[in-house]
């Protein structure tokens, strides 16, 4: 395909992305240097870096940063491990595989706010897990900072595992037969097969899941809103939720945009190695 045809074909996508992603980014940067609330949308006041200074001096910001990192550090490995485990189990069965997959996909397709609400209901008074905890361990489940954070993370694992499971399962289906057979002939144990044959085959997928997982975990929002009922007293804010609260209840649009800019810088620092890796991989393939 020559360059001109290429440009004709990609133009609609490019226009959409430039108009609705590049321009808003510059707008966000511009707004972040201004004092804007909902009352002076028409006349923003230039305040240079004071929005940034305010955020960096806010203890809630550092709390949110810490919780976001804890969240990512727990979610990604759990998703990968559980996903791989279930994918390996699924690979062993032929019978009823369709039904298993259908059930396992439920957390993935549920609307996040709805899934979180359903998850929370189990722990509320009158919920199944609340009841079981009380009966079996005589433990009364109460919502506080610790338990709300636990619920947010538990929901994240529950909702995130199906995607990695199905991706890894798809990877297992494409595992070359002869290398497995060769390993069997050589007398490799199940663990050796897993380590020397299956892992290398799944490695690109694991990178892919980690990449997508970090992006999604970094901007986790809906579960926080529903689990905390929008109450900041629980101190279970993530970066995105903190950003949202500044924009809505605190009503400081300029400050919220400064926060957005900070989160963008943050995600790029985390992702640059991945982006470089992807770039190299794709260049080799072409």
């Amino acid at each position: 395909m020559d360059r001109n045809t290429f440009l004709k074909f990609v133009t609609p996508s490019i226009i959409v992305m430039v108009l609705l992603m590049v321009i808003p980014l510059f707008m966000a940067i511009w707004l972040s240097f201004n004092f804007v609330t909902y009352t002076n949308l028409d006349a923003p006041r230039f305040v240079s870096l004071s929005n940034y200074k305010e955020i960096l001096a806010d203890p809630d910001f550092w709390l949110a940063l810490r919780f976001s990192f804890i969240y990512i550090l727990i979610i990604i490995p759990s998703k990968l491990l559980l996903g791989l485990l279930i994918a390996l189990l699924l690979d062993q069965v032929k019978k009823r595989r369709g039904i298993y997959i259908a059930c396992l996909l439920v957390p993935f397709i549920l609307t996040p706010v709805v899934g979180t609400l359903m998850f929370r209901t189990l722990f509320d008074r009158g919920g199944l897990i609340y009841f079981l905890l009380e009966r079996l361990f005589n433990y009364k489940f109460l919502l506080n900072t610790q338990s709300v954070r636990f619920l947010i993370i538990a929901y994240g694992v529950w909702a995130g595992t199906p995607f990695s499971m199905i991706t890894l399962f798809a990877g297992l289906l494409t595992l070359p037969k002869n290398s497995m057979e060769a390993a069997t002939v050589d007398g490799a144990t199940a663990f050796q097969k897993l380590w020397y044959v299956v892992f290398p085959h799944l490695k690109p997928l694991i990178t892919f899941i980690t990449l997508i997982g970090i992006m999604d975990a970094y901007r986790i929002f809906d579960p926080v809103l529903v689990m905390t009922r929008g109450n900041p007293a629980f101190k279970a804010e993530t970066l995105m939720y903190y950003n949202y609260r500044i924009a809505t209840s605190v009503q400081r649009l300029g400050k919220a945009n400064a926060m957005s800019v900070l989160t963008i810088i943050g995600i790029f620092i985390v992702l640059i190695p991945f982006l470089r890796l992807t770039y190299k991989e794709q260049m080799e393939k072409n």
Partner: peptide
């Protein structure tokens, strides 16, 4: 990878 809020407010 960009968080939704970065676009949402603009």
């Amino acid at each position: 990878s960009l968080p939704r809020m970065a676009f949402g407010l603009p």
